[in-house]
Design a protein around this nucleic acid. Sequence first.
RNA 1: GGGCCCGUAGCUCAAGCGGAUAGAGCAUCGGAUUUCUAAUCCGAGGGUUGCAGGUUCGAUUCCUGCCGGGCCUACCA
Length: 676
Amino acid sequence: MYRYLERRLVEHLRAFLRRTYNLDIANIVVEQPPKIAFGEYALPLAFELAKKLRQAPRKIAEEVVAGVGAIPGFEKLEVAGAGYINVRVNRAELARALAADLPQDDHSRQDQPAAVDVPAGKVLVEHSSINPNKAAHIGHLRNAILGDTFVRLLRFAGREVDVQNYIDNTGVQVADVVVGFLHIEQKSRAQIEALAAGTRFDYLCWDLYARVSQWYDEHKSNREARSAVLRSIEEGNNEVAAVAELISLAVLKRHLETMDRLDIEYDFLPRESEILHLHFWESAFAKLKDAGVLIYETEGKNSGCWVMRRAGTSSANTPALEGVEITAEKITEEDQKVIVRSNGTVGYVGKDIAYHMWKFGLLGRDFGYRKFFRYPNTHDCWISTVEGEKDHPHFGDVAEVYNVIDARQSEAQNTVIDALRGLGHGEAADRYTHFSYEMVALTPRCAAELGYELSEDDKARSWIEVSGRKGFGVKADDLLDALIASAGREVDGRHPELSATERGRIATQIAVGALRYFMLKYTKPSVIAFDFKEALSFEGDTGPYAQYAVVRASNIFRKGGLDADAFGEDAGNKLSAEDFSRFLDGESGNDIWELWLAAAKTSYVVGQCIATTEPAYLAKHAFQLAQLFNTFYHRYPILSEADEGRKKFLLTTAAVVRRELIRILRTMGIGVPSVM
RNA sequence: GGGCCCGUAGCUCAAGCGGAUAGAGCAUCGGAUUUCUAAUCCGAGGGUUGCAGGUUCGAUUCCUGCCGGGCCUACCA
């Protein structure tokens, strides 16, 4: 609602500037005033115009205020300070629309249906992409939670989204665990199969993987086992490849179970083995050669390889003059990225280029599909195969791509984008977003708790990187278990009257809320220094704080003998515009209005999150709304309110905030317990 | 060497394309009428936004140079 009012305001201003000053300002900046008493929007417009019009900002502001005329939904514009234009909306009108929960555009934009705002075409979000050779850890949790929340944000905005989780089942990481089972543990395929059927097979692989790394270090010759295993996996149709397949599928299944605990689901799991066996690369390779994106190097250390210019490097040595043959451009050795090795095999980036051509429907080949995993809610997750089932959903061929991959891979990601552009698919390259974020590390204290020996240098660091290879890190399931246990102790103490099952359910919801919120509250470029104390906190800027605000709202209705959901549904009919004016207008209405205004901003915030690929704004929004509600809750006792009209208004306020908060939390993948 | 990111309160982090008095949480200290349960609320202290310049009516934000830290820079994935 809030965002449509903003847009309408900008349109009126733009029209005014055009007809009055003959100026076309492409981007009219709209801000939010520092205090609610100043209004709902603030425009620094006059400062910008001062130079162009050669007039004092204050004078321009006065002209704008006087000349722009009435705008539907707005109360008035006024000049403040040196030339700010503060804008006041019609509080009663906005509140009534929010209470009625009108579909966003019905109220604000009757001339344009909501569908106009939703861009055409499907969106593909790739996230998680965990190597299927060991248990998922906290770093993977950040990825999956960011990715899943972004999916929810897109769906909130009306987009159709496919969720993919890319599985590298043919690389060294899987090979190393295969080496561990076959060479160190000396297990047979049947024995491994039995282990894989046990509980938390991924934990077993976690430890084994760390031991394999040690084993390699013991004798250089031990590494030969890895090469042999890798070769067998790539060739396929042999015992080693079968072992690798069974391990990677078993670990993958564990990952899906772990993520399902957090309400994270996938639609499709494309695997590297199919990219190889279905010859995706051959198709891509031919096109890349034709387009001159790949260059065959004949000298230097990369002699015999097909190379590409590394993303971010410029051809400073060979000035890009017009008419210069670009395809014959010489790339200095250090700016070369090897795509095809001299032995003819393709590296990771090459496979990724092929995969992304497939994503955009530019490859001319498709995967085979079979059902792999059915979630408890009966949603099916599909996996790639060479020969698949006849009937399957259509994946790929999308309009936009978001890849949730950590910042360390930005160069590789940009190289893929460059390749698409080099192939002449500039429009695809423009709609390819590397959703980049920083890693999760551990505080030195946390590392010490896990038994890691700290050097003096380590102790001075603000954080220490986890290492799967060393088996050093916090496993996702362990963290979740710890959170559930901790939340469970609180619930048991507070609600002994509930059944153990019910208490467990609540503890799980709180744990998931705490974990998801924790991973979302930091902005993406910030390294998270993980600490159990912080992650296990349920107070202050946390998920449980926001959940608790909803529970409190629910309690009001329960104690009052009312149904909160039902009350919220027709809340718009309970009060007249005059009622809203009475309680929201003027100085006295400011603090409750602030709560209403915050509740009205959800779709605006969702839009910001998508535009900036930053889910942290949603966490901030949830916290702010919960905080305002708690203040309101404390300041205005509702059930004991004597004035019936006022009581109805306060109840409506609680119902609307509760409804919006539930919506926000759902978009973050966080449910709300019945009691806390 | 080159590329990318970061540096804000004791700690962990915010600050929408440059805007009004740089905000939260934690920690510390002091409070909250026996209320819709305190996983809550109110208050206090705590800042030369790494340093130095520049652009601007206005800079935490943009530019340049330093200082400090991280990541990437494999014929690994």
